[in-house]
Design a binder for these strands. Sequence first.
DNA 1: CTCTTTTTCTTGCGTCAAGAAAGAAAACTT
DNA 2: AAGTTTTCTTTCTTGACGCAAGAAAAAGAG
Lengths: 394, 394
Amino acid sequence: MSPSKIRFSELVGEQTRAEIFATVLTAGPISRTQLAQRLGLVPSSVTRMLPPLLEHGYLREADATAPQGRGRPQKMLHVNPDKHIVVGMKIGPAQVSGVVTDMAANVLARDEEPIADCTPRTALSAAAALTGRLLSKAPEAADRVLGLGVGVSGHVDSAAGVCRYSALLDWNKVDVAGPLQEATGLPVVVNNDVNTLVVAERWFGEGRDVDSFAVVTVGPGIGCGLLLNGSLFSGATGLAGELGHVPLDPAGPMCSCGRRGCLEALAGDRAVLRHLQDGGFACASIGEAITLARSGTDAARNVALAAFTEAGTALGRGLAGMCNLLNLQKIILAGEGAVAHDLFGPALTQALEAHAFSTAARDCRIHVDPVQHDLWARGAACLVIRDTVGATLS
Amino acid sequence: MSPSKIRFSELVGEQTRAEIFATVLTAGPISRTQLAQRLGLVPSSVTRMLPPLLEHGYLREADATAPQGRGRPQKMLHVNPDKHIVVGMKIGPAQVSGVVTDMAANVLARDEEPIADCTPRTALSAAAALTGRLLSKAPEAADRVLGLGVGVSGHVDSAAGVCRYSALLDWNKVDVAGPLQEATGLPVVVNNDVNTLVVAERWFGEGRDVDSFAVVTVGPGIGCGLLLNGSLFSGATGLAGELGHVPLDPAGPMCSCGRRGCLEALAGDRAVLRHLQDGGFACASIGEAITLARSGTDAARNVALAAFTEAGTALGRGLAGMCNLLNLQKIILAGEGAVAHDLFGPALTQALEAHAFSTAARDCRIHVDPVQHDLWARGAACLVIRDTVGATLS
DNA sequence: CTCTTTTTCTTGCGTCAAGAAAGAAAACTT
DNA sequence: AAGTTTTCTTTCTTGACGCAAGAAAAAGAG
């Protein structure tokens, strides 16, 4: 038998093109040669893969005027931001908020639509209406709208475009992609809302340089999206990431899910509020609690700080468990609750370091995402970009 | 631009061959057509990939005598057990135990070598000696010894063949593959011991039909190996699976790692023994505790059962957390402690069901592996088979 | 000002994977 | 004996990609 050649790259076709696009996206303007090096390809392969990307207008060659030393000048490639736009959207219980972005996920316009109730009917027609409004705000330079990405909390079957179940929205087997596709005429991509954040962080944020990280959202609930070995991890049936209901304390308070001592019951907004109430400083909202902790009377501040500290400790223990199990390189804290990071952060870090088992788990970096109002919707837009470039190259 | 075809299969070359071998291995005697269907290939591709596998003697065509209805008779393919043999080995603190298996991982011979201490020097020379003894026991029909698989507890860098750190053996950056390769002249594959179990279960055991499962070993410590999306998950630096040190109870007992309330401190052997001692029925070993729980006096049995129940509850809570996070389809309980399943099982199941969040997590099946003495070593042998067929096809 | 050097990109060729389609083998049915 | 049915094989084509040689374009040397 003749010794067969080994194929160094494990990429094939479409996938290679998607990789090229992603690399151009994340590694800024980049030359063909550099691309080849990064992807473990020979330069000619890069050249060969490019025409479709350039013809579609996904990528563009820079005008290249800077002096580059001797040799043939590099033609830098970068994402062509003007040609295509994308709509991203998050369906929440009280409103639908969305953005229009270009192909580099820069936000071009934003808008939102409050909804009276969150029945599928109301929410989806609001989403369709919002899409129209957003597109009318977008620059007309755009040649073509690539699609609509939607983030929904709960259990989403993204292949089918269906929300199987959402506790927050009280949805049960709701077809999201179908109606929206019908109403807007756009390709629709649906996924879990936290997963949209994972994609956004992976492509444009803190996840660019690591291959396994978690995005943990802190707020009324605790959400978690995972990127393992470089790809989104959804579990066997798309339900992975229920960090909020990891049991942490057999003697803990009751959780909304009916069990005792879930992380969410120890570190969610309600836990903080309960703690404050017990201390005699009841607050109506978590925002109020944060204000109290930052600028209340001394007595109130102590109670509030203790409440956040306790939440931070619980969160740190939960994250430590996850790190021990998954050996993550980074944890990105996001969600509304991240603004209170100054209050719960120290306790979190301490608990995490105390319970992180091995050196590697201790090396797991924590990153707090600056509060970005559009982050969710932007993530949803990323879904479309990913799907488009990963699949639609004709 | 012409519409490009989509490549349905994501397999390429070597990988396809490895898939074919694995499918033949796990799906018994199977025809080319069936193989093609399973792997999403067209029959001709299967035919094309086979010659190297057949020539190497990894696979063989059955003599096919059974009547098969009309049509050209299928030529069933099966693993050729006789041609190659493999050595698998587990290095433990008190002995090295190993097996010789055929290519279907059937155990042909077993042996073990006690070691006085577990310094790398002692352990590795014992392993080399044991390899020699095992091979002399093996049938000489074997054409060729494919390699030596070694399972070591702790943090293993399998690519380098090095044990980075093992608490159990008190090893630090010990080169395992090098010396053994030198001493035995065989290709050596090293991995974490629990990971060898994962591979074994995936190929020959309870993991055959699921794509994401965990193997959890119960004993002095709690170990865990993960198979996610069909492939072994080792985390960013090979440290994933530290289930034993997931924090579960802030008020729990101290763990050997110095933290409080780790799963291992709540459900490991020592937890059971401590509970018994507190109840006034001190035992020297876990075996004694099991005997006590099964056939002691009523008072002793109550205490012992309570101890196991508590451990089972803690384990159930830990597993529930893992399920919630990873949406596993199955959890396989193994290790020495699995024999006590009748004692802690009910509590485990109850706690798991109580804390498993979503329907999918609740659907996660628990399987208790019947105590198999060679399971670890057999798993190590599987490593070699996997690596060989996955990589060495020339 | 021309020639060389250097770096980058492109073109042509060979190989391998894998689908498509048609043909060959081997059994059963009529 | 001829047809039917299922399985396996052969041949052809497309596409990905490495390899190697060549073309492009700029800086530096003589």
